[in-house]
């Protein structure tokens, strides 16, 4: 520990912890990178800082300008902290069915919340933010799904940290939202060690996809396409809510209090450990459990928790 000039200097350089006690295969180690240790509480602090500082550098964001972004929570919270410290007003388009704690945290940092329809999920929030940004050209719209500073934060931060702390890595597993984590870290690790396998974990697609009228209304993040996501990923797998909650709870056995998406990612790491003969799996724990206490995941009957989680966005 040391003396820091700004809270923003505490973003990144997160710990990597051996949780091989959860591995079903004695020849496979599992390590988790604890992104909840970031000051704003999630992996998205890295992305928020990176997008804001790139825009300050190239002049697209000027002092006092209002920032407008869509988020299922963590990017909004990270941006809200960075924006507050740097003096930018912030508006966040948030699906109404995210956990209550995510809304509360945005309020803590003084962000203005604009709610989008829950059944449209993150997709709907993104579309609404795109519309609002087009109508309000005075706002700065970082658009995390298409902003190269998003994967860059992982290519220059998360990836090198993993490589520094664990060059033995054979598999990298992370959640897939914007794809920033996977394409940024995936590219960095494969450049150093082409044999590294990159696994994406997704939550199950819910009712949100029912609203689309045709496949042509679908969306693949521009950063995924432009950063060769199709070539970088070796596997993409869906982990259901029950299994995600079960692994979120099991993480406590090794002292890790994490969010529900991390339970999904660790479930993916465990499936990976079952499939391979030997190796070292590095998985990303995107945030801590604090924002999910209201789900009752750790203390209540799992059927009840899964039922309550139905319709809630946790990625």
């Amino acid at each position: 520990m040391a003396l820091y000039n700004s809270i923003l200097d505490l973003i990144g350089d997160t710990p990597l912890v051996d949780v091989s006690g959860l591995s079903p295969n004695p020849r496979v180690r599992i390590l988790v990178k604890l992104e909840g240790q970031n000051p704003g509480g999630s992996v998205k602090d890295r992305v928020a800082k990176s997008m804001v500082e790139e825009a300050e550098k190239d002049g697209t964001l000027v002092p006092g300008q209002t920032i407008l972004e869509s988020s299922s929570g963590n990017t909004g919270i990270g941006l809200a902290m960075v924006a507050r410290v740097k003096g930018y007003p912030l508006e966040v388009v948030l699906p109404e069915n995210v956990s209550e704690e995510r809304k509360q945290l945005l309020a803590v940092w003084g962000a203005e919340i604009i709610l989008s329809p829950g059944r449209e999920g993150s997709n709907g929030a993104m579309r609404m933010a795109q519309r609002l940004a087009a109508e309000n050209a005075d706002r700065w719209f970082p658009f995390q799904y298409g902003n190269h500073a998003n994967p860059k934060a992982h290519y220059e931060g998360t990836g090198p940290e993993i490589w520094r702390d664990c060059p033995e890595v054979t598999h990298f597993v992370a959640g897939l939202g914007t794809s920033g984590t996977l394409v940024g870290v995936g590219r960095f690790l494969k450049e150093r060690k082409p044999s590294v396998q990159v696994w994406a974990v997704e939550p199950p697609a819910g009712e949100m996809v029912d609203g689309l009228k045709s496949f042509d209304e679908g969306f693949v993040p521009p950063i995924f396409i432009e950063h060769d996501g199709y070539e970088l990923l070796d596997r993409k797998t869906v982990v259901g809510t029950r299994e995600s909650v079960e692994w979120t709870v099991r993480l406590c056995d090794v002292g890790v209090f994490a969010g529900i998406s991390s339970g999904a990612v660790v479930a993916g790491a465990v499936r990976c450990a079952q499939k391979i003969d030997e190796g070292v799996v590095v998985a990303v724990v995107a945030d801590g459990g604090w924002k999910y206490l209201s789900t009752g995941a750790w203390t209540e009957d799992i059927d009840h928790v899964v039922e309550r989680a139905r319709g809630t966005i946790y990625f």
Binding site: G121, S122, P203, P204, M208, V209, F215, F219, G311, F315
Partner: peptide, 13 residues
């Protein structure tokens, strides 16, 4: 078969 959409989806199972 599912349409590709942005971001985290909803928890339904």
């Amino acid at each position: 078969i599912l349409p590709a959409v942005a971001g985290g989806a909803l928890a339904t199972n």
